[in-house]
Design a binder for these strands. Structure first.
Lengths: 240, 240
DNA sequence: CTGCATCCTCTTCGATACTG
DNA sequence: CAGTATCGAAGAGGATGCAG
């Protein structure tokens, strides 16, 4: 009768919170909502989580009816949201919009991570403004240690690949800026043109690709939400 | 640079989850959204939470900008939601509706608690169908230990008071049923008439008050949401 | 390589008791 | 009334190992 981890309340908010409001769980659901299904792909979305804890959480989510494991051909397991899990989408989105509105951008920008940023950008990149054929774009963050400085996005046939090493293709554009600048653009706190004019962003390569960067660069799903808290530095305030 | 409790992600979902998805926090916000402002009233809404942890969470919520403490006359402290905190309302409600839809009712009904139920009922009771003047209604849960068996709601001038002891007023209605039955009615899993006809609910007293019970008894805010998971017992399935 | 299980350390939580 | 203090228990993180 002594439920250890639970709240001991029949209220549906409490029942939902027992499932959702444990550490990392919301972020796992976010990844699943983005379409990730494999264990090691999920790990890319929550890199600071230990694999054993991820495994435990996935079991908990399965028991709660939020996900179902599907054994696909080849013996590998896929984790997929059930209808109940899909209906968590609006809740996770609402949390994101709330975070975008009310959490100080300086706080968000203390949590920079190039692999998370590039992984997100890969997902949302819009190939439409790019020329047909293969297109290779390098991102360079000079202040980072060498192993994390350089990233490549390769767009081909509407498909976007992310590399942490030089894929060897001819480069169409080199983007050079600080990780903070690129993250701020991604989050909608500033725009490409502003950062170029301020000298914080450099583009080298095909001018038409450079000029359309703001369009092919997808933004965070929450970028459009207007901030309600000021940025103390004033650098990322009130941009449309 | 090593954030211990955080996720290390700039994503607004992660920033919001750092604030909201710690143990008990969502339930504290739920209480505040219901209008509770005092420390010991908050404790009634989260009785299994230790006061030291509640104190810690309130400080965290204040630092996050979700609540503000107001020192009222008499030196006592009130906790009030900020605009940011008020905007958590839709998220908490969405979690409740999700819980009502997707969490098995048998699971919810394992977490029975008469003080929580009566506290919730007090909040939502609708005095309008009741006769003018004072009205005293006793709830009796015979299977509980004596100290928690009897509860009184006293309605006067549109005001609802809850007592755990006999207030001494003339009784207008005695409601006798199991705590599970009353909780199921409150959650919208069944209705007064069904439980009376099944012999699981007895009403003694003023017939007009008895007959209007389904109307004056407010229901859980989530009662209208339709279940999507079956109740294995079949007792609480598919009721409008 | 994927998907964990184990072991160990450190942090957090819960129950109770106790103050201004 | 509104919290703090204390201490044992549970949970989280990191490193490592291992089977398919």
């Amino acid at each position: 009768m002594e439920e250890r981890g639970g709240y001991g309340q029949f209220c549906p908010v409490a029942m939902a919170a027992e499932i959702l409001c444990t550490r990392w769980t919301t972020l796992i659901v976010r990844e699943l909502l983005c379409g990730t299904t494999r264990f090691n792909d999920l790990r890319r979305g929550v890199p600071r989580m230990s694999p054993s804890l991820l495994s435990k959480r996935l079991k908990e989510l399965e028991k709660a009816g939020v996900i179902a494991t599907v054994r696909s051909a080849g013996g590998s397991v896929e984790y997929r949201l059930t209808p109940a899990g899909e209906e968590l989408g609006p809740i996770v989105m609402a949390m994101g919009f709330w975070g975008q509105r009310w959490v100080e951008s300086t706080l968000s920008l203390k949590n920079l991570d190039p692999s998370l940023l590039m992984w997100d950008m890969r997902r949302k990149l819009n190939p439409e403004p790019l020329p047909p054929g293969r297109c290779t774009i390098q991102f360079q963050y000079p202040e980072l240690p060498p192993a994390r400085q350089n990233w490549w996005l390769v767009i081909e046939d509407g498909n976007v690949d992310l590399c942490g090493f030089d894929p060897g293709y001819e480069l169409n554009l080199l983007v050079r800026c600080s990780l903070k600048t690129m993250t701020a653009i991604w989050m909608g706190l500033t725009v490409v043109r502003t950062e170029i004019e301020a000298g914080r962003l450099e583009l080298d390569g095909d001018p038409s690709i450079a000029n359309s960067m703001q369009r092919w660069l997808g933004l965070s799903p929450f970028a459009a939400e207007s901030r309600r808290v000021p940025d103390p530095t004033g650098r990322f305030s009130e941009l449309a």
